[in-house]
Design a binder for these strands. Structure first.
Length: 206
DNA sequence: TCGATGATTGAG
DNA sequence: TCAATCATCGAA
C-alpha cells in the first residue's frame, strides 16, 4: 500500500484528522537483519491548531518541544506526557497557518498483534492499542521517532491508505482543560439503521 | 532554580 | 479515586 502523500496533510488540521480515520499506521521494527511491520487502522484522532486553539501545544508560540508542529507537514510530532507515556501526532495545516497537528488516539490492530502484546505490559487485548499512550507502547513509538516523515515508506513510522469508514462521529476532545468547546475529535463508526455505533477499538476517555 | 502542569494509565 | 512519574515552561 502506498503512503499518503504530503499534500494530504496540507489541509485544515481538523479535515486531516477526519480524513485519517480508516487509514493505516505502520511501524517498522528492525531487529538485526529482520524487518517486521506492525499495522493498525486509525480509528480515533483529534486536531490541535495554533492561535485559535488554547488546548494546542502551539498556542503560546514556538518552543523547543513544539518546534516540529511549526515545521513541514507530514512529520511525526511525539512528546512525553504525564511522566509515563508518549503521544503520537502528525503535523498538518493549511499553508497560511503556522502550526497544527493531529493526535492519533487509537488504532485497530491489523498485523503484528503478537509483537504488540509483547511491548505492552498488560495482556488485555481489548486495551492493546486503545488510547494515545497505549498505542505508542504497543507499537514501540517514542520520542526517538519524532520528526520522522510519515509520507515515505522507508520511515520507521508512516501512514498508508486504508478503507473508507462507513461513518465518522465527531465530538469534544478528551483530557484537556482549555478549548473544551471545539468538536475536533473523530471516531470510526458503523451504521446500524439510523444509528451510529462507535468502533470498540476507540477510547472513550473514561 | 522552582513549582505547577499535563493531548494518560493501571491499580485499588 | 489516586498515585506514578518527569519533561517542559513561565515565573522568580
Amino acid at each position: 500500500m502506498r503512503c499518503l502523500q504530503r499534500s494530504f496533510y496540507h489541509d485544515a488540521t481538523e479535515h486531516v484528522a477526519m480524513n485519517l480515520i480508516g487509514k493505516t499506521l505502520v511501524r517498522l521494527i528492525r531487529k538485526g537483519n529482520k524487518l517486521r511491520a506492525l499495522r493498525g487502522m486509525i480509528v480515533e484522532t483529534e486536531a490541535y491548531g495554533f492561535r485559535n486553539d488554547p488546548a494546542s501545544h502551539a498556542f503560546q508560540g514556538i518552543t523547543p518541544r513544539n518546534a516540529v508542529m511549526f515545521g513541514e507537514v507530514g512529520k511525526a510530532y511525539i512528546y512525553f506526557c504525564y511522566g509515563n507515556h508518549f503521544c503520537f501526532n502528525i503535523t498538518a495545516r493549511i499553508p497560511t497557518f503556522k502550526a497544527g497537528a493531529v493526535l492519533i488516539r487509537a488504532v485497530q490492530p491489523l498485523e503484528g498483534i503478537g509483537i504488540m502484546r509483547d511491548f505492552r505490559k498488560i495482556y488485555d487485548d481489548s486495551l492493546l492499542t486503545k488510547g494515545p499512550g497505549r498505542l505508542t507502547q504497543a507499537m514501540d513509538i517514542s520520542c526517538a521517532n519524532s520528526g520522522q516523515d510519515v509520507t515515505v515508506s522507508e520511515s520507521d513510522v508512516h501512514v498508508t491508505g486504508g478503507a473508507d469508514p462507513p461513518a465518522i462521529i465527531s465530538s469534544k476532545r478528551i483530557g484537556i482543560s482549555k478549548g473544551v468547546d471545539k468538536e475536533w475529535r473523530y471516531v470510526f463508526a458503523y451504521r446500524d439503521k439510523d444509528r451510529l455505533i462507535q468502533s470498540t477499538y476507540a477510547s472513550t476517555g473514561r
